[in-house]
Design a protein around this nucleic acid. Structure first.
Length: 579
RNA sequence: GCUGGGUUCGUAUAACGGUUAGUACUCAAGAUUCUCAAUCUUGCAAUAGGAGUUCGAUUCUCCUACCCAGUACCA
C-alpha cells in the first residue's frame, strides 16, 4: 500500500521567486520525479494585501526556464489551472479561488472544539502586546491569556451569536491544548518534540480578507490534493507542531504527509539569509529572471546575466545537497536519479557566486562550437556585426572575404568564421557574452579615439548640431565598432625602436606570399623576427598591441591569420602613425 | 527574552565509532607560451570550546559559545 508520491511547490505571489525558492521547487521536483510521482504547483495567495501583479507569471516562467515543469496545477500554456480536469483534478490551484472550500473546515474545527471565534480587535491586541512589553514580557494569545480576552470561550453564547450574526468582526483561532508534547518527525532533521505550552492560538481565519491563513489553507489543500511529502523552507519548522495538531484535529493523521524542512540559503559574507541587497552589493543575481517591480526598480536575473539554466540548476542543487561522492556536474536527469533527502544538509548554505560562475564555465565548455555560435551571433549583431550563413549572398552585397571568412571593413563575417573564433576562445569564456570582450578585435579594429580628442560613438556629419571631430580613418573603420587601446600597455610596449620592427613585420605580412595557413603565417612571423635577431617578446607584445589594442590576449598567429594581410598591415600602420 | 533548529579548511561538502581528515571553488607558487587566459604540478587552509561514554569520538550524550529561524488577522 505504497502511497503515490505527490509533492507541491506552493509559492506566494508576493514578488519574484528568490533563488532559494527555486531550490525548494527543484528539490520537490527531483523528489517527485525520482519516485515517479507528481509535482504540483499551488498558488498561496490568501494575503490580498501582499499580492503583486506579475509575480505568479514570473514564478512559472522562472521554473519553466529551469526545466522544472509541473505535472499538475499549471497547464501547458503556463497558466494556473482554474477548472478541474483529468490531469488537474484539484483545480482551482489558486487559494483565493478555493475560498468556499475552507470555510466548512474551519467551522468543523469549531464544532469539534478545536477552534473558537475571537472578537478582539487589532487595537485591543496591540494594546495588550504593548502592555506586556512594557512589563518586560511577551504577550501570547494562548490557553492562559485567552480566558481573559473576548472570544467564544469567554463570552456568553447569546452574545457570541449576536456578534456573529451582526458583525463580521471576528477571527477563528486554533485552541491549542495545554501541556501536550507534540512528537514530530522530519525527513531531514529527525525526531523533534515540542510542548504545546510554548505555542500560541494561531489565527486560522482572517477577518481582514475573509480568507483562511496559510496554516489552515495549507493543511486543507495538502490533504485534499493528497500530498504525500511536504518539502519546504526552514522558516516553517516552528509551525510544524501546529500543523501536526491540525491534522489530528481533522482526523487526518493516517494520510498526513511526511515533512522535510530545508535550510536557508545564506549570504556569501557575514551572517543572515541571502537577500536582494546582497546581490546588488556584491554583483550577482538573487533571482532566476530579471524582475521589474511595480515601482519600476529592476533586479538582475541569472538568465539575463548569461547563465545557462542547466548550470544554474546544477549549482543550486549542490547548495545543501551532495550525491555522497565527488561528482559535481549533473544533468537534470542525473539529479533525479541521484537525489536523496537524507543527503540534504541540515545547516544553511552560504551561497558562493564564484562557484556559480565556475558551473557556467563548465557548461559553456560542454556546449558544442555550433551551439555556442548560435548563441553568440545575436550578441555580435548587437555590436553591429553581420553574420551570414551563405557567403555567396554576401558577395553579391559587396563583401570581400579574407581567407578566414571575414570582411573587417564591412563588418560581415561568415558563420564559419564566428565558429572558428568560438572554437579557440571558448576555454577563456564563462558566459557567451564574454566572447566579445575576449575577441572583439577579430571583428573590429582597435583605436583610441579619445586620445585624439575624438569621442567614441557614431560619427556625425560635419555641421550637424552635435558635430564631433571626424577621424579621417573613420571611412575605413567605424569608430562605434572599435576596441580601445590599453593606455598602460601602450606606455610599456610601444617604444620607437620596437615600432620600427613591428612596422617591418607589417610589411612582411602584407607581402607574404607563402601558404596562408594559421600555422604557416605564425611560424613565418616568428622566423622573420628571429632571423632579424629582434627581441621576440617585445616585438610580439607590441604587435599584439597594434592588432588588438592590448598586450595581453590571443596568440599573434590567431589574430593575423583571421584578420588577414590587409587588415594586419593597416592596423600596424595606423598604430605606428597615431600612438 | 522565549521556543525550535544549526555548527568539518575562507566557501560548498566527504569521511558503517578506527583515514596522514578527502574533493571542488577561491587564493598563492612553479611549469608552459610571444602576452594574457586556459592547462598541468605543488602549496596554504578545518572537525567552535569543554566535559562525558568508549580501547578509540568529526561521528554518541550533556554543558557553554556563536549563528539562523519563528515569536502577525504574512506566507
Amino acid at each position: 500500500m505504497e502511497r503515490r508520491t505527490r509533492v507541491r511547490f506552493a509559492p506566494s505571489p508576493t514578488g519574484p521567486l528568490h533563488m532559494g525558492g527555486v531550490r525548494t521547487a527543484l528539490y520537490n521536483y527531483l523528489y517527485a520525479k525520482q519516485k515517479g510521482g507528481d509535482f504540483i504547483i499551488r498558488i498561496e495567495d490568501t494575503d490580498s494585501n501582499r499580492f503583486v501583479p506579475g509575480a505568479e507569471e514570473y514564478i512559472i516562467e522562472a521554473l519553466t526556464w529551469c526545466g522544472i515543469i509541473p505535472d499538475e496545477g499549471v497547464d501547458s500554456n503556463g497558466k494556473v489551472v482554474e477548472t478541474p480536469s483529468a490531469r488537474h483534478p484539484h483545480a482551482p490551484y489558486r487559494q483565493s479561488q478555493r475560498k468556499p472550500i475552507y470555510r466548512k473546515y474551519a467551522e468543523q474545527l469549531i464544532a469539534n472544539g478545536y477552534a473558537y471565534y475571537a472578537f478582539d480587535s487589532a487595537e485591543e491586541l496591540g494594546k495588550a502586546r504593548a502592555e506586556a512589553e512594557a512589563a518586560g514580557q511577551t504577550f501570547i494569545y494562548n490557553q492562559v491569556s485567552r480566558m481573559s480576552l473576548r472570544n467564544s470561550l469567554t463570552l456568553p453564547p447569546a452574545e457570541v451569536e449576536r456578534l456573529l450574526a451582526e458583525t463580521s468582526d471576528w477571527t477563528i483561532r486554533f485552541k491549542m491544548p495545554s501541556d501536550t508534547v507534540v512528537k514530530m518527525d522530519d525527513l531531514i532533521r529527525g525526531h523533534i518534540e515540542v510542548n504545546t505550552d510554548t505555542l500560541d492560538d494561531k489565527v486560522l481565519w482572517k477577518r481582514a480578507d475573509e480568507l483562511p491563513t496559510y496554516h489552515l489553507a495549507n493543511i486543507v489543500d495538502d490533504h485534499l490534493m493528497e500530498i504525500s511529502e511536504v518539502i519546504r523552507g526552514e522558516e516553517w519548522l516552528p509551525s510544524l507542531p501546529l500543523h501536526y495538531m491540525l491534522y489530528k484535529a481533522f482526523g487526518w493523521e493516517d494520510t498526513m504527509p511526511r515533512f522535510a524542512h530545508l535550510s536557508l540559503l545564506l549570504k556569501p559574507i557575514g551572517n543572515g539569509k541571502l537577500s536582494k541587497r546582497d546581490g546588488d552589493k556584491m554583483g550577482f543575481p538573487v533571482f532566476p529572471l530579471r524582475w521589474t517591480n511595480p515601482e519600476g526598480e529592476t533586479s538582475r536575473g541569472y538568465r539575463e546575466d548569461g547563465y545557462f539554466p542547466e548550470a544554474f540548476v546544477n549549482m543550486l542543487a549542490m547548495l545543501g545537497w551532495n550525491p555522497g561522492d565527488d561528482r559535481e556536474l549533473f544533468t537534470m536527469e542525473e539529479l533525479i536519479g541521484a537525489f536523496s533527502l537524507d543527503k540534504v544538509q541540515k545547516a544553511g548554505a552560504k551561497f558562493n557566486p564564484e562557484k556559480a560562475k565556475w558551473y557556467n564555465r563548465e557548461y559553456l565548455r560542454m556546449k558544442t562550437d555550433k551551439e555556442l555560435t548560435d548563441l553568440l551571433v545575436p550578441v555580435l549583431e548587437e555590436h553591429g556585426i553581420n553574420v551570414i550563413d551563405c557567403p555567396k549572398c554576401a558577395l553579391t552585397a559587396g563583401a570581400e572575404f579574407n581567407v578566414a571568412g571575414g570582411d573587417l571593413r564591412n563588418h560581415i563575417f561568415t558563420r564559419d568564421y564566428v565558429q572558428s573564433v568560438v572554437a579557440f576562445t571558448k576555454e577563456r569564456a564563462t558566459f557567451v557574452q564574454d566572447f566579445w570582450a575576449i575577441a572583439s578585435y577579430l571583428f573590429v579594429a582597435p583605436a583610441d579615439f579619445e586620445a585624439f580628442g575624438i569621442k567614441a560613438g557614431p560619427q556625425v556629419a560635419p555641421g550637424a548640431a552635435d558635430a564631433r571631430p571626424v577621424d579621417p580613418r573613420a571611412k575605413v573603420y567605424d569608430d562605434s565598432l572599435t576596441a580601445p587601446f590599453i593606455a598602460k600597455d601602450v606606455d610599456k610596449f610601444w617604444k620607437p625602436e620596437i615600432v620600427e620592427m613591428v612596422s617591418k613585420v607589417g610589411e612582411f605580412v602584407k607581402t607574404f606570399d607563402g601558404n596562408w595557413t594559421l600555422e604557416g603565417v605564425g611560424s613565418a612571423i616568428e622566423e622573420y623576427i628571429k632571423g632579424n635577431e629582434w627581441p621576440m617578446g617585445k616585438v610580439m607584445n607590441a604587435l599584439r598591441l597594434a592588432l588588438a589594442g592590448s598586450a595581453s590576449g590571443l596568440g599573434i598567429a590567431d589574430i593575423v591569420w583571421r584578420i588577414g594581410k590587409i587588415d594586419t598591415a593597416a592596423r600596424i600602420a595606423f598604430a605606428a602613425s597615431r600612438l
